[in-house]
Write a protein that binds this DNA or RNA. Structure first.
Length: 173
DNA sequence: ACAAGGATACCT
DNA sequence: GGTATCCTTGTC
């Protein structure tokens, strides 16, 4: 039996780049129809702070981005290009807008594909990562060392000026 | 190479 | 009210 520990808000209420590294190797778990599906998180991107032009929150607090200013551990889900959902988890302390985009899990590469596979849509937006919401992150004691982690620039943010070059994408080889 | 698709933010 | 834009993907 694998030892499992659901991650609490405290895990997410830390510097975003640190959480981004730490969440690699953790498991995204979804309960659908009484059954659980899970996959190891393998690729993420950090979006941190009001200055980050790649972040939706750079334009301030709006109905959409309000959740990024809220409590760590809440989900931020949005629809992109009219057809794909992107799953983020809010980080840092309340009032500081930041989140981590889940770009890939084991066997599923691409933020839209992750949401499609895990049946994630706007219903999950602003809800906490917790068992009661049927969508959460848990630690299954997979050991990840710094050598396992690669980093590079974020995808699809060429409009973000100097922020586009920041190596805030982290992934397992 | 590029169309699809709809919510969002920011105009008039 | 109109419209440019978008943290993408699948098919062309």
């Amino acid at each position: 039996m694998v030892r499992r520990q659901i991650l609490f808000p405290e895990f997410f209420a830390r510097p975003t780049l640190k959480v981004a590294r730490d969440i690699l190797g953790k498991f995204l778990v979804r309960e659908i129809g009484g059954r659980e599906m899970a996959a190891m998180i393998t690729e993420v991107e950090a979006y941190a702070g009001p200055q980050d032009l790649a972040s939706h929150a750079s334009r301030g607090k709006t109905p959409r981005t309000e959740v990024m200013f809220g409590k760590a551990g809440n989900w931020y889900v949005y629809l992109i290009y009219g057809m794909h959902h992107c799953l983020n988890v809010v980080t840092e302390k309340e009032g500081y807008p930041a989140a981590i985009l889940v770009r890939g899990v084991e066997g599923v590469y691409g933020p839209g594909r992750v949401c499609k596979r895990f049946k994630i849509n706007l219903l999950q937006n602003k809800k906490p990562s917790a068992k009661k919401t049927k969508l959460w992150v848990e630690d299954r004691r997979i050991k990840i060392t710094p050598r396992d982690i690669s980093r590079g620039p974020r995808i699809g943010v060429d409009y973000a000026g100097k922020w586009k070059d920041k190596k805030w994408r982290f992934y397992l080889a």
